[in-house]
Write a protein that binds this DNA or RNA. Structure first.
Lengths: 135, 135
DNA sequence: CTCCAAAACGTTATGTTATTACATCCGTTG
DNA sequence: CAACGGATGTAATAACATAACGTTTTGGAG
């Protein structure tokens, strides 16, 4: 799912969901977004999931498979990269977005050597960010 | 979650779950394992999840986060590697397990450069295996 | 401006994945 | 045998996600 090159105007629901994610320090689950947006008229999970799907399509947010959560993209040019890795701190839950084209091509060619042609990747690292590692 | 170096004797439930995964061509979800094992006396999800947890702990199976499923480890010495990547074919659903120590250390040091210390990784690639790519 | 089609939306219901809580069983060890 | 820890059985519930259906909004084409 390559993000669109252009970012269309967001709808009301999409804007609300995007703002919730942008202002969060940590990844949010769909249901926690739903809870946050009750006062804005959200009543059902599907309202959130639909907005999330679109935001992902636009390349504005990412889904973190390993924790069933979503983060706003902090990486301005992330649509221009093949692969993005996410480093998720197990202490503060903050996420660092990492792109590295050399790594991406290494990983793709490693896969090719193993008889596989990559179209999409999920790379999620768990551990501690420096701030948390110091205590 | 580093796998134990020794593999203890498996219990009855663990054996049943492990066999189901070993004999499957594709990753299985916990609930599809449950369905397969009804005749063996399985009645509740927890029976499956408990066995899965132990098998993961022993390093005998892997969890695929991006598809909420589990596979038996086909990689004899996978406990000796820091990182394992999984290539999941979107056509036949089969999984190729890839380990590469150079890649692992590159990725770890890339993370370190970004202020992060990795303890555990999830790397799941989607695409097509050669067999399916040919049609 | 009007009409149409596509997209977005609201709502209910349901499907799927995973865990909590609690009682019981079973083998090992002292 | 008694005590303990690990494994088990069962019910209930929590958490995550989608199907189906009807209505509303939006943005062109004429």
């Amino acid at each position: 799912m390559t993000p669109s090159t252009e970012t269309p105007k967001l709808t009301k629901n999409q804007t609300l969901v995007y703002k919730a994610l942008k202002s969060a320090e940590e990844p949010l689950s769909a249901y926690s977004i739903l809870d946050q947006l009750r006062d804005d008229g959200f009543r059902a999970p599907l309202q959130v999931y639909r907005a999330l799907d679109k935001l992902i399509e636009f390349g504005l947010i990412h889904r973190l498979e390993s924790i069933n959560s979503f983060v706003a993209c902090r990486h301005p040019d992330c649509g221009t990269h093949e692969m993005v890795a996410f480093a998720i701190c197990e202490s503060c839950n903050r996420v660092i977005e990492i792109t590295d084209d050399a790594m991406a091509s290494n990983l793709a060619s490693l896969a090719r050597d193993n008889g596989f042609s990559v179209s999409r990747s999920t790379i999620e690292l768990r551990g501690l960010c420096d701030a948390c590692r110091v205590h």
